[in-house]
């Protein structure tokens, strides 16, 4: 019996070719000859990972000069290249080794930013930094340092360095944006105490600020000698009075130039409620702000001078203007202007 493939003449009765191992005749042997077929719905689902596979072969596609490829094996240069996760491996043609780590980093970083302000967000960002550190560690240091203690030290140092790096990048690239927690509750703007708000530095110019706007400023310590109030660090406050206006607090509401403001839009904080204060005249280039202070000493007499000292901020002291509620997620959205 002659083999169709190699033309070797086999002994009669053989099922496979003695020379090449091919099947000699299908007759008498049940072989399924109908190939499996792909369900149509699977097409797009397979196309996406294929597209990624075809376009993420950096090591193969990048035309990297040979000297750079060799030098990328050096730990120091590897670390520098690893500032962009996976670049060192891509240059040395070993991107596949870390592709899933890079993929995870690409997923976790935006997810962490999205959830920034919550514990989940911090956790995701932490894992993203950890993955970045691991990618760099795998390329540059793992082969050089074999001892487990040394490896743990290297990795820990990388985490610290990358943590600082991320902080620096955030300050550089997103320096215009600031996050801050508020301890105001303003029903009109759907803001509750403890919300994280997003603010922009570039909008803190005096011409952009209107009554009802939220701004970030550092509260002063008032009555330092007697420790009457303690202000916080940087906090979010609401503008109530503009420069040149006369502010009074009466019946649990603000009165500006004789006009009473809506309590939903301009709620008087607890430490000023039930008191009659004013009138206080706001200086030009200054604002009267709605701020929450901790008052030390119950029943203490608050004078207009003390309240003015606590609540009037100069325009130069305003650091940024709040543009949106960032967290909690269900109330995320841009703020509506009061006026």
């Amino acid at each position: 019996m002659r083999c169709q493939r190699c033309q070797f003449e086999n002994m009669p009765g053989e099922s496979r070719c003695f020379k090449c191992g091919s099947v000699l005749s299908g007759q008498g042997v049940a072989v399924d000859v109908h190939p499996p077929r792909m369900d149509r719905w699977k097409g797009p689902f397979r196309a996406v990972p294929r597209w990624i596979r075809l376009r993420t072969r950096f090591g193969e596609r990048l035309r990297v000069p040979a000297f750079l490829r060799i030098m990328s094996g050096n730990a120091a240069l590897g670390l520098v290249l690893s500032l962009i996760p996976g670049l060192a491996q891509a240059v040395s043609g070993r991107f596949r080794e870390v592709r899933w780590f890079v993929f995870g980093w690409l997923l976790l970083l935006p997810a962490g930013i999205f959830f920034y302000g919550s514990g989940t967000g911090y956790l995701l960002l932490g894992i993203a930094v950890g993955l970045h550190g691991w990618i760099a560690f795998r390329h540059s240091l793992m082969k050089e340092h074999a001892e487990i203690g040394q490896r743990i030290f290297d990795f820990s140092m990388l985490l610290v360095v990358f943590g600082l790096l991320y902080f620096g990048v955030r300050s550089t690239l997103l320096g215009d944006f600031m996050f801050g927690y508020t301890n105001l509750t303003i029903p009109y703007q759907n803001i509750e105490s403890g919300d994280m708000l997003l603010a922009r530095r570039s909008l803190s110019g005096a011409e952009d600020l209107k009554r009802g706007g939220l701004v970030q400023s550092t509260l002063r310590m008032v009555g330092r000698g007697r420790r009457v109030f303690s202000g916080g660090a940087r906090t979010i406050v609401q503008i109530v009075g503009l420069g040149g206006e006369k502010i009074e607090i009466t019946d649990g509401a603000y009165v500006v130039d004789g006009r009473m403001l809506d309590g939903e839009q301009y709620p008087v904080p607890e430490w000023l409620k039930g008191r009659k204060i004013g009138p206080i005249v706001v200086d030009v280039n200054s604002y009267f702000v709605n701020a929450v202070y901790n008052v030390e000493g119950r029943g203490m007499q608050l004078t207009a001078e003390m309240v003015g000292q606590a609540c009037i901020v100069k325009s130069s002291e305003i650091e940024s203007k709040v543009i949106m509620r960032w967290f909690p997620l269900k109330r995320r959205g841009f703020l509506k202007e009061n006026e």
Binding site: Q4, R5, S22, S25, G26, V31, V33, P35
Partner: peptide, 19 residues
Amino acid sequence: YSRSLEQNSSFYPGWVGQV
């Protein structure tokens, strides 16, 4: 190609063609 293999399953051009 499948029908050619139904006639003779050891006909390897049929397998190559199917693939």
